[in-house]
C-alpha cells in the first residue's frame, strides 16, 4: 500500500524482489546500493545467515527526486528464496506496491522458477491481492552463464501475464537499473490509476 504524506509532501512505495533461492535478488539490491548516489539511498540492511543466505529480508530505501512537488521514496525489499521460508515471504509481501520476479535463467533452475512464480501468486492472493493485476516485472537473470534456457522458453513458463521482461546479469549490473526503472514506472502508473478509483 503506497503511503502519501501530504504534510511532508512524500510518496512512499514498496517494491519486493521475489524469486527462487540464489537467483540474484540480493545481488540486484547490492548493485543498486553500490551505484546509487549516496544522497539518493539509505543504508542497506541484510538480515542474513552467516553464509549470507537471506534469512528474513534485505532492505534498501531510495529517494529518487520530486514529481509534482512530492518527494518520491521507494523501499526495496527482497524475500528469502529458499522454499522453507514461506512464512517470511508472506509477511514481506504485505503492503507491496510492485514486484520484480527474478528468475534464474539456468536450465537446471527451471522447476525452481516455476515453483517460485506459483508461490508468489498464492502468497499474493493470501494477502488480498489480485496476482493478475499487481504491477509486475520479470527479470531473466544470469544470462551470462552457460546452459541457460531461451527467452522464449522462459517467457512461456513464467510470463503468462505478458508483463515487461528484462534480460540481466545482475552480478555485473546488466539489466539491474532497467528492471528497477520499469517497476517504478508501473508502480507510479498504478498509483495514479488508484487515485482515480
Amino acid at each position: 500500500m503506497s503511503f502519501i504524506n501530504y504534510a511532508s509532501r512524500e510518496i512512499n512505495c514498496k517494491i519486493v524482489y521475489y524469486g527462487p533461492g540464489l537467483c540474484g535478488k540480493t545481488t540486484n539490491l547490492q548493485f543498486i546500493y553500490n551505484r546509487m548516489n549516496p544522497d539518493a539511498r539509505g543504508k542497506m540492511i541484510s538480515l542474513a545467515t552467516e553464509t549470507e543466505r537471506t534469512l528474513f529480508f534485505d532492505f534498501l530505501p531510495l529517494s529518487l527526486g520530486e514529481i509534482r512537488g512530492f518527494k518520491t521514496r521507494f523501499h526495496l525489499y527482497t524475500v528469502p528464496g529458499q522454499v522453507f521460508y514461506d512464512a517470511s515471504r508472506r509477511l514481506i509481501l504485505r503492503g507491496v506496491d510492485g514486484v520484480v520476479f527474478c528468475a534464474d535463467s539456468q536450465l537446471t533452475r527451471t522447476d525452481s522458477n516455476e515453483e517460485s512464480m506459483e508461490n508468489l501468486r498464492v502468497n499474493l492472493r493470501e494477502q488480498g491481492y489480485d496476482p493478475d493485476r499487481l504491477p509486475l516485472v520479470i527479470q531473466y537473470n544470469k544470462r551470462d552463464l552457460p546452459n541457460v534456457a531461451s527467452l522464449a522458453e522462459l517467457h512461456a513458463l513464467l510470463n503468462r501475464r505478458n508483463v515487461p521482461e528484462i534480460e540481466a546479469a545482475a552480478s555485473s549490473g546488466i539489466g539491474v537499473f532497467e528492471t528497477l526503472k520499469t517497476v517504478i514506472k508501473l508502480v507510479l502508473i498504478d498509483l495514479k490509476r488508484g487515485r482515480r478509483q
Binding site: 503506497s2 503511503f3 504524506n5 504534510a7 503492503g95 507491496v96 498509483l191 488508484g194 478509483q197
Partner: peptide
C-alpha cells in the same frame, strides 16, 4: 488494481 493508498494530511499529521 491498486491495493490502496494511505494518505495523511496536514491537520491529522499535526
Amino acid at each position: 488494481m491498486s491495493h490502496g493508498t494511505f494518505s495523511l494530511r496536514e491537520p491529522e499529521y499535526e
